[in-house]
Nucleic acid binder design. Structure first.
Lengths: 197, 197
DNA sequence: TTGTAAACATACCAACTAGTATGTTTTCTA
DNA sequence: TAGAAAACATACTAGTTGGTATGTTTACAA
């Protein structure tokens, strides 16, 4: 896949922005901060992006969305055992995602927390992210019900809400307590998932 | 309880700060923003607080901590039925806490998300908050186990992590989806709590 | 090779930030 | 009631912010 030099520049800005925003927050991360980690200047930044917010939205759509799809959605598609797939998705993203650091939580959860109430455009973009994941979990549970591996009276919407909330929440708690709560959470998640079948 | 005029001024700054920080975030909320909602000026602010951060910490300890203790901890102390107490605590804080607005989530969760990774002093103060709640939930579950109302093989640490994570997470999700997910979450929480007994 | 538009760099600006220096008023005690 | 300290108000600063105006370089087609 060919990328022009300009396209590489643009993507590198988005990547560096993603790294910094992950650790500092969106509003606390200035354009100068981002540019300081690159070899670029403001001319380059504002050539590729009209405003900081437009860059932020591009970051959501072009960096965060592909990342979350790979880690959170693809493992659920066409899963043999839905219960096991749900657990392993969670365990993998919590314990084995190499980029994530426990003190900084999850980039997507962070951005939702900070920007969803403030900017309608961020709200919209991040809502799509969550709805995609929600749908993937729901479908996964429904397939489990259809194949008889999950109890009939289980509510797929409820399970999806529980899992998404659990993930977002334990990312929050991890910022204070550290990784130990991840393990505690995963144990309890396994117990919970067992009650579904 | 008598309060000097100065004490009232100080507390009103903390209250207004709490309101604004709840809606805008800590770093995005400037001292001028806070003072604009009062009849005060910078002289008053920096007479009562050495820095913005010291004001923020006072807000955590003197406004947020009492609030969360009243809503999240007291209802669990000496609860007759622990399972019912846990559910009602959650239902009440999610649906009936008058100050909270779904699009802004929970003030404590917001501040943890934003400040825990950045400031050690905030991290410390907010950690105390969460540890208190965690301990209250754990004690509540243990009492349930002791009284035979909760199954012996239930892990109090796991339940506490699950509930705290669930709460923080659904507050996050509510910012995107709205109150509907609160109801879905509460239904599933009821199912989960039922499996404990 | 040459022209030209794309892809940047440099130098700026007005608005805002936390914080300070120095006043003035209020409160309360002696 | 006088005075002094507490409780504020006013005016300012240096640094940072997103964004702009204008220049220079690079890539690429003719």
């Amino acid at each position: 896949m060919f990328m022009s030099k300009a396209a590489i520049t643009r993507l590198s800005i988005l990547q560096k922005a993603f790294d910094l925003i992950y650790m500092k927050g969106y509003q606390a991360c200035s354009i100068d901060d981002i540019l300081a980690t690159t070899e670029l200047t403001k001319g380059a930044f504002f050539y590729h992006f009209k405003t900081k917010d437009q860059m932020g939205l591009a970051m959501v759509n072009e960096v965060m969305y592909p990342g979350m799809k790979k880690a959170l959605i693809n493992p659920l598609i066409a899963a043999q055992d839905p219960v096991e797939a749900l657990y392993h998705m969670m365990e993998h993203v919590l314990l084995h995602a190499p980029f994530f650091q426990v003190q900084y939580g999850c980039p997507a959860v962070n951005l939702i927390e900070e920007m969803a109430p403030l900017h309608a455009s961020f709200h919209q973009a991040l809502l799509q992210l969550i709805l995609q994941w929600q749908e993937a979990i729901r479908t996964c549970v429904k397939q489990g019900v259809a194949s008889g591996k999950i109890n009939q009276d289980v509510n797929p919407d409820g399970v999806a809400a529980f899992i998404i909330a659990g993930y977002s929440g334990i990312r929050n708690m991890g910022k204070l307590v550290g990784v130990s709560c991840y393990h505690t959470f995963l144990k309890e998640l396994k117990m919970y998932l067992k009650t579904l079948s």
